[in-house]
Design a protein around this nucleic acid. Structure first.
Lengths: 186, 186
DNA sequence: GGGGAGTGTGCGAAATTCGCACACTCCCCG
DNA sequence: CGGGGAGTGTGCGAATTTCGCACACTCCCC
């Protein structure tokens, strides 16, 4: 019940997708790589898409569920972009050949969660409704993910660190200001 | 039949032994760490000593079986000692609390194999009996392993690279000389 | 239009993993 | 000294997982 096999299948796919495009990967390739029976694959996954789905879900969970306590949002994003840079090939292959939608959805979820967490921490002392924080988080999420997607589209040119430093000026002070300004209205 | 579980058990032990001494590690610790039933452990291993044994055997095989094609013997040993430095804690705990014999045996086998391989390559053109090459390999193996054991005993003080560079002068030219000298006798 | 490669499914058999129970040792503590 | 707790190793049978084999189906290429 420890399902090491399931993990092995997922790892094998992650390996393969960083080597070649999705349409060049068969179920047989996957099971051969981890030395198991083809039927065992189908025991765990309905098909190869279900596998990709599960990988996205668990990878997202790894980040969302980790409750990482970053000092700044920039730092958090740097980590994220570094991760993206390391898995450049894999992300690129998935993005190009499987599901742009899924990649965007993944980035949105992960980003939104981190942004919201950060905003809540930064503005804990300001008495504003939750809705406002969530709206603010959505705003920044779309901005960031949009930039990330562009970065993906341009074959990830440029260093992550530069990308991040440019974001700096947009964040510092802005979030607190946005929230308290709305609050001052009535 | 892919036995991912067995590997997980071995990995868990390697993790644990790098954290604390052998006599502080129970079977329960191991199975808890990889989330399996205690009986599953006994399905694969007779006891914890059999596990250690197997780990030594497979780790040895990884190196011996890899037929690594090093340019020089020094380079090969540097790799080995770097490996030892990385797994410092684990090797140290095993060496101190389980089986000095097993560690020495492990080092001897791995070292002998690498040395013999190197000697054969270096002296392929010299017409000497295999016995002579094997004797020469044993000689150098004991010398090197002795130094390694001393290094282990002294808590692995000093940088691996220094250790290796000192060996350099002992090797260059010496091996060919030793073998051809014997050959010139009759 | 036939063959090769890949997919997805349906078995039953084999292998693996699990939970539970038991006997045994060791060691600590009152 | 005696009991209790923690760890070990074993013996099941049940549950789960993995495998091998067979089959129907699609797609594509020659």
């Amino acid at each position: 019940m420890a399902q090491f096999t399931k993990k092995a299948i997922m790892d094998a796919f992650i390996e393969l997708i960083s080597e070649r495009a999705f349409d060049k990967i068969t179920v047989k390739d996957i099971v051969t790589r981890c030395g198991i029976n083809r039927n065992t694959f189908y025991y765990y996954f309905e098909d190869i898409y279900a596998l990709v789905d599960e990988i996205f879900r668990t990878e997202t969970q790894k980040i969302i569920g980790s409750e990482t306590d970053y000092v700044s949002l920039q730092e958090a994003f740097l980590k994220g972009i570094e991760f993206a840079a390391i898995h450049k090939q894999a992300i690129f292959h998935i993005y190009k050949s499987i599901s742009r939608e899924q990649v965007e959805d993944y980035l949105n979820k992960v980003t939104y969660n981190n942004v919201l967490l950060f905003i809540k921490k930064e503005t804990a002392d300001i008495d504003a409704p939750e809705d406002d924080r969530e709206f603010l988080a959505k705003f920044y999420t779309h901005a960031l993910v949009g930039l990330l997607i562009e970065w993906l589209g341009s074959d990830m040119k440029g260093e992550p660190i530069e990308f991040i430093s440019r974001l700096g000026v947009l964040f510092d002070g802005n979030i607190r200001y946005s929230l308290s300004k709305k609050q001052a209205k009535p």
